[in-house]
Design a protein around this nucleic acid. Structure first.
Lengths: 324, 324
DNA sequence: ATGCTTATTGGAACCGGTTCCGAAAAGAAA
DNA sequence: TTTCTTTTCGGAACCGGTTCCAATAAGCAT
C-alpha cells in the first residue's frame, strides 16, 4: 500500500491524498472518499519517504549514558512523559558511559534527521561542543553545564550547602566529606564546594577524601579509610557511596547513627530500603527530564528560551544522622 | 552534500558512488578518487533515502517496558552489547509498562521499517500475537513465553525448585511462599509451582499468600501478614518483595535470619547492599539479552533457530537464611 | 448571465539514494 | 591483431512521499 494506490482507489491524484494527510485544502467530499479508502486498507505513510522531502521527522534523539542509575532513569522518565504526551517518537541512543559513543550518538542521531537531541551528559568536552555546533538542530543538555548550549542543571552547590547546614546543627567536629573526582564538574566540584564553603563560614573544618561513583570501588576505598580512623560524620557525594559506607559500618559493628552518621546525595529508592534509612538530598531528576523535553520542543518551534535552567532539590531527613 | 555532488566532484556517476558505498565493483582508481572526495567533505549518505529503496535499514527496534528494574536493565545491556558490536543501531521504544504502548511500539517500529524487533514483554496477549503475525519482520520475545514466536525464557520453574531444595535442607515447617498474581505466567505461576511442587514431593506443606511487584504495596501487604503471624521462612517471589519483608522485619525487631529466614528471586544489586545480604536466585538477564540479540540477527539473515531458548540461573547463598 | 475572487485539484519536479541494464573499457585467449 | 570474456561504468527508472504551480471548479456580487 502506498499513496499512489490509495489515490487511484479514491479516484484522485497523489497530491490530493498527500494534502489530505497533512493539512491541505481538500473538499469535504473528497476528504470522505480518501478517508474511507485509507481506513479500509489501514494505510500508513512510509516515514522514510516522508522524511526525505519534508523537514520534520517527528523523532527526537535522547542520548542516555546508563540505564542502571536512579538519576538517569528518573530523568528519562520525565523526558518520556513530555515527549509521549506530545505524540513524538523518541529514539534512545545508549552509550554505556562511553564518551566516544556519546559523540557517535550525536552524529548518528543527527544523521537520522531527528528534530532535536537531548543529551544526558556525563562530562562535556570541547569535542562535544564542536559536534553540537556543527549540527544545525537544537540540542539540550541535562545534568551538566556547558557554555553556549541550552542546559538543564541541578543546583549541586545549593544541595551541598543544604546538607552542610543540616549537619552543622548537630556536629562541629570530626567530619569527613567523601567526594568524587573533579572531572565531574557538577558532583566532583560544585556539590563538594557547597558543603565545604558553608563549613568554612562557620569555621568548621571538614576533612576530605576521594573515591569512585562505583559501589564496589567505593566500598573498598571506605575500608581503607575506616582502617585508619572512623569519623563521627561522613558526608558522601552520592547515595551509592553512602550505601557502601553504611554496609561497611554494619559489617564492622559500627552503629549508625549512634557512632557514625552518614549522608548521601541523590534520593535513590534504596535509601529508604536500607536500615537505617539514609538522610540525603533528593534532586529533581524527573523534573529535569520534563524541562529538557519541554525546552527541546520549544526550540524546535523556534522559540527562544534561556540558556540555563535550574532544577531544585530537597533535603530528605532520615535516620542515618544522629540528632543528639 | 549528497551523492550527486560527490559524484560530480569525483567526476563519476551517481551509480558509481552508490556502488562504492555499498560493495559494488569499482576499479581501484575510481575508488580512491571517490574516497578522497567523501573524506574531505565528510559525507554520509542520507538514511531515509537509503532505506526508501533498499530493504535493510540496519536498525533494530527494542521495546522496553521499564527502565527502573534490574532485570530490564541487565537484559537491555546484553542486547546492546551484541547489537553495538555488530554495528547496528537500536531504536528503543519505552512503554512504561503500558500494554497498549507495547502494541503501539510494535506498529511504530515496524512502520519505521526496522529490520527486527526485540520485545521485552510483560505479558503476552492474543492482540500481541496478531500484530506480530501481521508484521513481516522477525520478532523475538524475551522474558515471557508465547506459542508461535521466538522466545528467550528463564527457567522459572527450575529456579523455584532450586530454592525449595535449598530451603528444604534446613526447614520442614512453618513456611510461607509470598507470590504475585498469576496473570504473570513466568513469575506468578512457574516460579511458584517450582517451589511448591518440590515441597509436595517431600510432603512439606507451605502456605501461600499473594502481593504486588511494587515495593510499597508489598510492604503494606507484609505488614498485614506479620500482624497475623510471622513464619519461620518466607520465600518471596521477587527480590523487591523480599527487601520489603526484610525492612518490615528489622522495623519490628524480628531478627533475620535467626527468627525469620527470607529469600528472594532475581539477583538484584541491592540484595548485596542490605544487611543481612539476601539469599536469592540470580537469573541470566544479561545472557538473555545477548541471546535475544543474537537470535534476531540470525533471523534477519534468514537462519532458522529454535523457537524457545532457555537461560539458566544460579542460587546465590547469602546471609538471610538460617543454616541451623 | 458575467466577471471576479477563492477553494480544489492534478501534473510534474523533486528529495537522495539504489538497482537494473546495456555500453564501454580492460584483460585474456587465440 | 582479433575475438571473446570479464570488469567497470553511466543512464534511467524507481522507492513513496511532498510541494510548487497552473488549471479548473465553485462561490459570490453585480
Amino acid at each position: 500500500m502506498n499513496i499512489e494506490k490509495i489515490s487511484q482507489l479514491a479516484g484522485v491524484s497523489k497530491s490530493t491524498v498527500s494534502r489530505y494527510l497533512n493539512n491541505g485544502s481538500v473538499s469535504q467530499r473528497t476528504k470522505e472518499k480518501i478517508e474511507k479508502i485509507i481506513k479500509t486498507h489501514n494505510y500508513e505513510p512510509n516515514r522514510f519517504a516522508q522524511s526525505l522531502k519534508a523537514k520534520r521527522t517527528n523523532m527526537l534523539g535522547v542520548i542516555v549514558p546508563r540505564v542502571d542509575s536512579f538519576a538517569a532513569n528518573e530523568t528519562f522518565k520525565g523526558i518520556d512523559k513530555v515527549l509521549h504526551d506530545s505524540g513524538l517518537q523518541s529514539i534512545i541512543y545508549y552509550t554505556n558511559q562511553d564518551i566516544n559513543r556519546e559523540m557517535e550518538g550525536l552524529k548518528a542521531l543527527f544523521n537520522q534527521r531527528v528534530d532535536g537531541i537531548i543529551l544526558m551528559a556525563t562530562h562535556m568536552t570541547a569535542e562535544h561542543m564542536s559536534i553540537i555546533n556543527s549540527v544545525d538542530i537544537p540540542v539540550v543538555i541535562v545534568g551538566q553545564f556547558s557554555e553556549g548550549v541550552h542546559c538543564i542543571i541541578h543546583d549541586d552547590y545549593g544541595a551541598g550547602r543544604k546538607m552542610a547546614e543540616y549537619i552543622a546543627r548537630y556536629f562541629k567536629d570530626d567530619l569527613l566529606y567523601l567526594g568524587v573526582s573533579d572531572t565531574d564538574e557538577a558532583v566532583g566540584i560544585k556539590r563538594r564546594d557547597g558543603v565545604l564553603d558553608y563549613f568554612d563560614t562557620l569555621g568548621i573544618t571538614c576533612k576530605t577524601a576521594e573515591t569512585s561513583f562505583n559501589y564496589s570501588e567505593a566500598f573498598d576505598d571506605i575500608g581503607v579509610i575506616f582502617e585508619a580512623s572512623v569519623p563521627e560524620v561522613m558526608i558522601c557525594a552520592t547515595d551509592n557511596i553512602a550505601l557502601a559506607a553504611l554496609k561497611h559500618a554494619i559489617e564492622r559493628g559500627i552503629s549508625v547513627p549512634d557512632e557514625l552518621s552518614i549522608t548521601g546525595f541523590g534520593g535513590y529508592n534504596t535509601t529508604n530500603i536500607v536500615t537505617p534509612t539514609l538522610t540525603t538530598v533528593r534532586f529533581g531528576y524527573f523534573e529535569a527530564g520534563e524541562k529538557a523535553a519541554e525546552s527541546i520542543l520549544k526550540l524546535i518551534d523556534g522559540e527562544r528560551i534561556s540558556m540555563i535552567q535550574h532544577v531544585g532539590n530537597e533535603l530528605i531527613i532520615n535516620e542515618s544522622v544522629d540528632k543528639k
